[in-house]
Design a protein around this nucleic acid. Structure first.
Lengths: 194, 194
DNA sequence: ACGGGTGGAGAACGATCGTTCTCCGCTGGT
DNA sequence: ACCAGCGGAGAACGATCGTTCTCCACCCGT
């Protein structure tokens, strides 16, 4: 079997199992069974479990951000592009098998013991925040607004994961709409609102 | 030794170790060593590790909410009481050894495999949201605002934990100030902002 | 003083899991 | 056909950990 295909199958199985059951709850044997990739091959592709976890988080990060950007790019005006983030979250939260943010969960599980996982979580969250900053500056909003939008999104992810309540995304969306409108008011209008 | 004292010492050790290193990374033996409570006694007090985890989350929840309420009660006006939540978060985030929210972390680690942990996390988050609802209704604000304030707080906790950035609390505070002002505007003013 | 029982220290047990090793069948070149 | 080597299945190994068991020192009532 082609090595690249085996790698992808292993990562597919790892992603599904790690995300659904938690990382530590999934043994290498379960990944072997789910992927059909033998243990020997698994350890040729990833020298140990930590590297497999790392590759899982890396690949998921790329896909997650690409899908978000794809949704945002369906909108044209800066304001609608910002709100599209929360619409996308809403769709994500309603997907069957949604179990919260893989990086928040992974950090909670292994952030204290695995520097690699902690770093992946930080990098992912930083990249997300940078993306929001791009969207806000395109809308002429200050970076502080991006920070606030970020907190709303993170709060929606954490809450939706724990409470199984996709509506968090709608509340976040409404708050975001208020914030970007209020900040605009403060800039253009008098500073009645602060 | 008094049974109640042994129980408290065990919980003290469990809380410190579970929170700092993650639950699964701490063995019963480490708790025995840190607490000075023998294994036999530990298993008399808690029939198994899951029950110890449960007691840890329960006791921490009571203390966490009591300390938050204590801080909020230092303020008198409804608006300042709401904003005190974020000031308290800011102080908490800057404490040495802060590692994020114990329930977000615990849910990420064991939410998928332990129904007891998942339920404790849900109950804690629900109680926090109920408390915010009390604060907002006292301020004459709608429940939707409580939901938004909750998302800001949860986002600040998740972000501060992962990024080691206490400033999340200040950004959340500023966003909260905008939201409760904006919502007040919508109610009293014309509904220019929505 | 003495015997019974309580509690502590730590060994022991069984299960799980990451990682490696063994054995064997298959393949591909000559 | 034959042999060398690659890859797969799964056993094996060693470590960790939750839980229980053993053994012994100490204490307290008579």
């Amino acid at each position: 079997m082609d090595s690249a295909i085996a790698r992808e199958r292993a990562l597919d199985a790892a992603e599904e199992l790690f995300y659904a059951r938690g990382i530590q709850a999934v043994g290498m044997d379960a990944i072997r069974t789910a992927s059909g990739v033998s243990l020997k091959r698994l350890y040729q592709l990833f020298p140990n479990k930590e590297r497999l976890i790392d590759a899982y988080l890396e690949r998921r990060d790329l896909r997650w951000r690409a899908q978000l950007a794809e949704r945002v790019d369906q909108e044209t005006t800066p304001r609608r592009r910002i709100l599209a983030v929360y619409a996308w979250l809403y769709d994500w939260f309603r997907e069957p098998g949604f179990r919260g943010c893989a990086w928040i969960n992974g950090y909670g599980e292994l952030g204290a013991t695995s520097p690699a996982v902690a770093e992946r979580a930080r990098a992912h969250k930083q990249a997300f925040k940078d993306y929001l900053t791009d969207l806000t500056t395109a809308a002429g909003l200050p970076e502080a607004t991006a920070e606030q939008l970020r907190l709303l999104a993170e709060g929606a992810m954490a809450t939706a994961g724990i409470m199984h309540d996709p509506e968090s995304a709608r509340h976040a969306e409404r708050a975001a709409a208020l914030l970007i409108t209020a900040d605009t008011q403060v800039d253009t209008d008098t500073r009645r609102i602060t």
